[in-house]
Design a protein around this nucleic acid. Structure first.
Lengths: 302, 302
DNA sequence: GTCAATTACGTTCTCCGTAAGGATG
DNA sequence: CATCCTTACGGAGAACGTAATTGAC
């Protein structure tokens, strides 16, 4: 009546015998010798203090207790199998979900191709993309609503971070502007230009405000919330503007020109943030790996 | 990444660590050395190809995959425990049910005390008692509606049988009948008496019809279905009757007397019948054991 | 420096396979 | 007598414990 350590193979052996009602065939199904199989069943019965099978040398059948047990075992076996399979699938990114928050510019320029690659690699893993401003993205991360946040600047001390890429700025001006034809410009070359800024809530503006040389430029009294508006103002000839590379797609229109700003100090870091002390899911790890190689593939041109 | 044979102790170890988040304490809970415990967890992770826990030497926490698995494991562990417990309970007659069919006389005379003993021994095991005539009882047995049938005679070839007791017959007559005072009578001593029989459907009558000496007696033209009617007819002085011992309780009334019939050949066997080739449940086995000793305790007196 | 998890290594013990035994039709 | 389950016995490998090692705070 000694207690044994019930294992999946025990359950399997039991249900094989319950179904076949034949030791030899059940043993084959379990890839065991008939003798070992017999011992296995015997050990189970001993540990329970109950016969599970009624056997003569010619006939094997379940006892009433065995029948009750058979139902339970069949169910439990399936659940265990399913739990293990689910775990394997999660670990191998054959199923699961990953949620990412990204700045709108990142979401619009960088993510689409990346998500396309992701879907090719892991078609069964759901990706949820939140295109949010920096603050909102970090809030989602803090609450655990997303696994990863891609942001720029801000107070990131509560998170684990890594810089994915540093994003250069570009000058945007009218196509007929004297600077439009230049290969590159510097901040010094912008003295006298009227610069239209985004409003103070934007991460771009916050970044620019920390750069003394930008403070030295002439700021337009105009301040807008949206890049589309900014493009229209510049197109109208009301000034020029400075924007990070990833936002350039807003300015690809007739009448506007973009010129690289040759100011390494101004490049803004695009940061990947994770919750501190929290392990990433396998899917999130895989997505992160993709993020790390992706910047190499992204080179927006003028 | 080698596959292991998942056992109950593995699930237990996992859930212990998931709850305590501390290897040393979880190992204690599982009665394992901390080292063995650590290896156990490692083997599980290896076999899954997935980390279940995120550990530093100071901090242990579940990975996202581990959390998913934890829910499953907790449920499965409980179900396995419950299935094993239920089986043990069934085997030890700590729960369960047993159904018995018995002749009305057996049910009325023998069963009540026996069931009382049963309930003292196995209070949680439900007993269903069907007090049926022989034919109906065997039908219930054949259909598997009862585990055991207690009957007398009939065609029992399709069942496994054993004789529980052989029941002597008694003469029942008026108290003022000449034979009433006798210590015992024989069939020969009944010549000339008018004997009232039960109707041909009863097992008693069928049994008596196979005894030549009874055929030699003078049969009353009266035939009744019920023993109570029979008692009334005898009390009225319309004849005497022959009944098995277990039915005597119907005749314990003023004006009637019962005299042992000293005819071993007439004793009718009370038979316990089981379905052939079917194992009995533990509860049914225990009930059967009680039945086997019970006849010794039953000695109805005059 | 202490606490806690991992690694190393020798040992124990479970479990399996081969082979002999026994029961049943 | 053939089939099929059980018992006997020896061996391989899994799992455990002690002890040394590594790592974090």
């Amino acid at each position: 009546m000694k207690s044994i350590n019930w294992s999946a193979s025990d359950l399997e052996a039991f249900s094989a015998l319950a179904q076949t009602r034949h030791f030899t065939r059940a043993a084959e199904r379990c890839h065991l010798s008939q003798s070992a199989f017999s011992q296995k069943i015997r050990r189970m019965e001993d540990s329970l203090g109950a016969r599970l099978f009624e056997r003569s040398t010619r006939q094997v059948s379940l006892t009433p207790e065995g029948e009750v047990f058979a139902e339970d075992v069949l169910r439990i076996e399936g659940e265990l199998r399913q739990a293990l399979a689910q775990l394997r699938d999660l670990a191998q990114c054959r199923t699961g979900r990953v949620a990412v928050a990204a700045l709108p510019s990142v979401a619009a320029v960088w993510m689409p191709a990346l998500i396309a690659r992701w879907r090719a690699l892991h078609p069964q893993v759901t990706v949820t993309l939140h295109d949010t401003l920096a603050h909102a993205g970090l809030a989602l991360l803090r609450e655990g609503r997303v696994d990863l946040a891609i942001t720029a600047g801000g107070d990131l001390r509560e998170f684990d971070t890594e810089v994915l890429m540093t994003e250069p700025y570009w000058l945007v001006c009218r196509a007929d502007h004297p600077l439009a034809a230049r290969e590159a410009v510097t901040l010094a070359g912008l003295v006298g230009e009227e610069v239209i800024h985004l409003s103070r809530g934007s991460s771009v503006r916050q970044h620019l405000e920390h750069v003394p040389q930008v403070q030295g430029l002439r700021a337009s009294p105009l301040e807008v919330e949206h890049l589309a508006t900014l493009a229209a103002l510049v197109a109208q000839g009301l000034g020029v503007t400075l924007v990070p590379e990833l936002t350039l797609f807003h300015f690809r229109q007739a009448g506007l020109a973009a010129v690289p700003l040759d100011e390494p100090s101004l490049a803004r870091p695009i940061v990947l943030a994770r919750r501190k002390g929290r392990a990433l899911s396998a899917a999130a790890q895989a997505f992160q790996a993709l993020l790390r190689e992706a910047p190499l593939a992204v080179r927006p041109v003028r």
